[in-house]
Nucleic acid binder design. Structure first.
Length: 425
DNA sequence: TCTGGGGTCCTAGGACCC
DNA sequence: TCTGGGGTCCTAGGACCC
């Protein structure tokens, strides 16, 4: 039996790098990318990190710092990042037989059983060079016998420049040396709450966690943490998932650019989210039976009266028809809406998914089948909207969308819109 | 004045059944 | 004052991830 070997390939400062790619004039400048509504810092270039701009901070708290150092800020441009991500991932798919796209900027490669004419570090270096050459994106590579260790190897590759961005952690002694250097919260799966509880037991470093008794950990925490302990010891417990599992829920939610106090506007927003969620559902080729609608005021404001509520409903039979969900959502909203609050955010969730054609109706349910004409209408709508972005929509979505999100610093859709292609002079 | 969005998994506890 | 035990299913909430 051959030992498992995983590589984690992670793009460096991904969103900020995407923005820089098309703005050579910003090559050495500090760049940050902001969350929806231009609310928080969600990505920083190397230069911005050096300035001490922290991840996740609300922009208004660092405004002076940004101005002082001439930091260039962008609204998030997901069309651009998704397209660049796809280029990176398809490059990786030419370099390894099994690839799991783990997030927009990371992928695990399964190197188990591969016969390397080169050693693993050399393989990592060649991955790095090819991705850089084909896409312009810089990556780091961590290689190890479990995913959790590969994550830490990647972290090391990012942290210590003299590694050249590639770390091979298949050697046991090297593993222990690195684990001893890292605080336990750097471990994949150990967040803030677990870190606190572990520290109370005297476990501060990754190595101390690795050396803890798995059974003891299972009793005091959970099977998840136990698995982490085993993974830290090089025992692979988390398999590579190269076939994306079908989704179990689809959420569409957003904070508003401006607070909503008017029910009509809330109807528009909910309609918009329903429309997006159902479009995603059809892309997944699934039907959903469960719908939740939720809304809330800002949890940060101590002046506004707080209110947060959600309501759910089950359809008689699964559907992917936007009109069906729109009607139900409006009923739910009637039950949720309270006058007098300043709403900051709302959203919808679809769940309880079925493959088309497999739903077993209950004994007393009307066997309502989705009519072919209904499906054709939805398909036509999706087709039109993908060809010419958002050509048609439901009247309830509103045409002004005054509550829509703020994106005042948006870069052009360089790679996905002909009209916005970069021009080389 | 201004604080993101979209997911997954696990567990505890209640409801219900025999 | 007395009022079982054990199993399953579902849901809400908490934890984590990027």
């Amino acid at each position: 039996m051959s030992q498992n070997i995983f590589a984690l390939v992670d793009c460096n400062n991904f969103y900020a790098s995407c923005e820089k790619l098309f703005r050579p004039d910003l090559a050495e400048k500090p760049v940050v990318v902001l969350s929806n509504n231009d609310g928080c810092i969600i990505a920083r270039s190397r230069e911005a990190k050096t300035l001490g701009i922290k991840m996740g901070l609300p922009v208004f708290q660092v405004r002076d710092l940004l101005r002082k150092h001439d930091v260039v800020a962008f609204s998030s441009n997901y069309a651009l990042y998704a397209d660049m991500s796809q280029r990176v991932m398809s490059t990786l798919e030419t370099l390894a037989p099994r690839v799991e796209v783990y997030s927009i900027d990371e992928a695990f490669l399964d190197l188990t059983g591969l016969d390397f004419s080169q050693n693993l570090t050399e393989f990592g270096i060649s991955v790095k060079h090819i991705v850089q050459k084909w896409t312009g994106i810089t990556v780091c590579v961590g290689i190890a016998p479990s995913k959790t260790l590969a994550k830490l190897a990647n972290h090391a590759a990012k942290t210590w420049h003299k590694t050249g961005g590639v770390v091979d952690l298949t050697n046991k002694d090297r593993q222990r040396k690195l684990l001893a250097l890292l605080p336990v919260n750097e471990v994949w799966g150990i967040g803030g709450k677990l870190t606190k509880r572990l520290q109370q037991l005297g476990i501060d470093t990754a190595l101390q966690l690795a050396d803890a008794d798995p059974n003891y950990i299972r009793q005091h925490f959970s099977v998840v943490v136990e698995r982490t302990v085993r993974e830290l010891n090089g025992e692979s417990c988390i398999a590579l998932e190269d076939i994306a599992p079908t989704k179990k829920q689809i959420i569409s939610s957003r904070a508003f650019g401006e607070r909503i106090t008017d029910k009509q506007q809330m109807c528009e927003a909910i309609s918009e989210y329903i429309s997006r969620a159902c479009k995603k559902l059809r892309q997944e080729q699934q039907l959903a039976k469960h719908l939740t609608v939720f809304l809330r005021t800002s949890p940060f404001s101590d002046k506004d009266a707080p209110y947060s509520a959600s309501k759910s409903i089950e359809l008689d039979s699964p559907s992917s028809d936007t009109r069906v969900f729109l009607a139900k959502a409006m009923l739910l909203l009637d039950g949720l809406w309270m006058n007098g609050y300043r709403y900051a955010k709302a959203g919808v969730m679809l769940a309880d998914f079925y493959d088309p054609g497999v739903h077993q109706p209950g004994l007393f349910d009307d066997p309502i089948v989705q009519k072919d004409s209904d499906q054709a209408l939805m398909q036509l709508m999706d087709k039109l909207n993908s060809k010419h972005a958002d050509t048609i929509w439901f009247a309830s979505q509103g045409s002004q969308q005054e509550w829509g999100m703020k994106r005042e610093l948006l870069s052009p859709a360089y790679t996905t819109n002909w009209a916005q292609l970069p021009i080389v002079k």
